[in-house]
Design a protein around this nucleic acid. Structure first.
Lengths: 159, 159
DNA sequence: CGTGAAAATTTGCGGAT
DNA sequence: ATCCGCAAATTTTCACG
């Protein structure tokens, strides 16, 4: 149903370097006409491969220079507690992202706040509002590097 | 130097909901002319507040449905080791992102791979190539939610 | 910060390989 | 079946008030 050929992959590569690149530019660099490039890009969007474009904002410049990863254990780890906490924490303005995980913790929450005082307040005021939160471990993030060259994998094993 | 007023914040809000939204649409929803919206958006870009637009790709649909967070400790944690490992791991095709952190680990690496076999291979083949890697702890990611409504904070000395 | 015109881009349709 | 050329509609862009 989704035959990702080399042309699709090339378009994906181009748009990942800059999601706002014009269709004309994409077409030129991958070597097809703008019409073909547009058809393919719309196909990728329709099939859900491309979900959208996210704005990359400098967090320090908007007054939130302090980032942290907060590992959280909820008890008991019932569906009700997991989904309830997930939706609650994902909606907080401090939260950049939420990972729901296995392992010794149930959540890793990525936050950005103005300073260490705000971070401390987030942990001891906001998180403790939730009775299901059993354990919290905070790590300051010095640097967050994102890879914007995500390549498709030809599913190995059983294709 | 960077007086983020309410108009800048509104434009940032609009573009975060969809970084490919046309300037005309942004202007209409924030209630200014397209020219003003363009001037502001370019100003935000020039000042570095907007760093670019990232394509949101469905990882499962490109053959990489298995995500993990891998906590890594390097010994000794010298600048040479930290920066060397950081650059090496950030460039691997499996890597989505790298967090350099304090706490009991030095790195949290976010990866996406085709299956559990590939994940295991990544951990025991690739990571162990590096002699500075002293400890590894892997957590499977069931779900990753991103908050695409990141609001500016008016620098709070004491707000 | 807005108006208006010019340039660039996107987009749908018909045709070619 | 996929890709391309053309022309209309939309959007970006800039000089000016």
């Amino acid at each position: 149903m989704a035959p990702m050929d080399e042309l699709d992959a090339a378009i994906l590569r181009e748009l990942q370097s800059d999601a706002r690149k014009t269709n004309r530019d994409v077409a030129a660099t991958v070597g097809v006409s703008p019409t073909t490039a547009l058809d393919r890009t719309r196909g990728l969007r329709r099939r859900g491969v491309i979900r959208g474009a996210i704005l990359d904002v400098d967090l320090a410049l908007i007054g939130r220079p302090v980032q942290a990863l907060i590992a959280i254990r909820v008890r008991p780890p019932s569906r009700r507690n997991i989904e309830g906490f997930r939706d609650w924490v994902a909606a907080l303005p401090d939260t950049l992202g939420v990972y729901v995980t296995t392992g010794s913790e149930d959540f890793i929450v990525h936050v950005a706040v103005p300073d260490n005082t705000s971070l401390y307040a987030f942990v001891i005021d906001r998180l403790t509002e939730r009775p299901e939160v059993a354990d919290v471990r905070t790590s300051i993030v010095y640097e967050h590097i994102r890879n914007n060259r995500i390549a498709p994998c030809h599913s190995t094993g059983t294709e």
